[in-house]
Simulated assay, not measured.
Amino acid sequence: MDLGLTVGDSLERLEATAEGFDFVELSIGESSLRPTEVEDDRLRTVLDDVDADLCVHLPFDQVVSTPVTQLNDAIVDYLSELLEWAGTVGARKAVLHATMRNPHDTGQRPVFAEQLSAIAAAGDDAGVEVVVENVGHQARGLPLSVLGDIARDTGTAVCFDVGHAYMENDNDGIRRFLGDHRDLVSHLHVHDVRGRGDTHLPLGAGEVEYGLVADALSGFDGTVAVEVFTDDVPLLRDSARRAAEYLDDSR
């Protein structure tokens, strides 16, 4: 298991917080770090300085699928360009939010599946594993069970965001998804949450039962990104330590 850190779109935050982590997850694209605005050599130097591999988070401003074919084609083209760039700078994985214009329109779900397959194939071409993330607590996010079924049908790996699952359906949502789909999970986002709406808290500061995650994913050999919204390095490292204690018996 590799333990990493989400760093948003900031190379400065990457430099300041990522030392000691196995990888970083960098947000790219619209409203984030645009490949045309960053010098690839600088990114490689920063990663070398902190001795970390790279994963990326694809943009979340636009949805993955709409009822309009031309828009869907443009979305795939745009994300394919980002994935191609990510491959050139050595990114291992790319996180994609599971969103569509109307996630409750069951007739459009096959279109989402087609879009997801095309984006994942573009990732394969670039040498980057696309992992689709649960965001069912958001207005345009697919429900957990629907995402799991589509990911299985399309053969797409999952980024399971533990806090998002809690926000959608409490600890029962975590238990059910991992009970049915744990074999699809390649990447984890870990943070804590309180039911009143506080999220992306340090592990142990909220209401998520991480023992459920440990029971389902003990010995997990994928990637785990700490997604705690702070630049306090001791807090970040403590969350990483807690995640390791839950998931990796060898540490």
Rank of each mutant, 00 (worst) to 15 (best):
L83W: 00
V128R: 10
L58C: 03
H200C: 10
L236M: 05
V95K: 11
D22Q: 09
G87L: 07
V56Y: 00
A243I: 14
D2Q: 13
G29S: 14
D77L: 10
P103Q: 13
G4S: 07
L54A: 02
V185I: 07
G123T: 10
N171P: 07
D53H: 07
M167L: 14
C159N: 13
V185L: 00
H97S: 06
P202R: 14
A74Q: 07
T223K: 03
T6N: 01
A121R: 09
V95A: 14
Y246G: 03
T99M: 15
S65A: 13
R182K: 02
V95D: 07
V185A: 02
E30P: 02
E12H: 15
G163I: 06
D49P: 12
E129F: 09
F220H: 02
D215L: 01
P110F: 04
E245G: 00
A74F: 14
N134T: 08
D231P: 11
D73Y: 07
T66H: 11
R140V: 04
G87H: 12
H200D: 03
A139E: 06
A157M: 11
H181I: 12
D153I: 03
T69L: 13
L43Q: 08
L201N: 10
L3K: 15
R13T: 11
E129H: 10
T156D: 01
C159H: 06
V233H: 09
R140H: 06
M100C: 05
L83T: 05
R242V: 12
D48L: 09
A139M: 06
G195Y: 04
S31P: 01
D215S: 09
R34N: 14
R196K: 09
A16S: 15
G155F: 11
D215Q: 09
D9A: 15
I75L: 08
R109G: 03
P59F: 05
D170Q: 12
V208L: 00
R42A: 13
H187G: 00
A52N: 01
K93R: 13
R241G: 00
T6L: 02
R34W: 10
V213W: 01
T6E: 02
D149L: 00
L116V: 07
G173R: 12
A52E: 03
V95T: 11
S31I: 04
G136I: 04
V233Y: 02
Q70A: 08
R194N: 12
R42C: 02
A244S: 10
E25P: 07
G4Q: 02
R242S: 04
A243C: 11
R34D: 08
G148V: 04
L26H: 07
S10I: 07
Y210C: 01
E227L: 14
V158Q: 06
D161Q: 01
F177I: 00
K93P: 05
M167W: 06
A52H: 10
A18D: 06
Q70L: 11
R241V: 05
A16R: 15
G136D: 03
Y210V: 05
G148A: 09
G206N: 01
A225C: 02
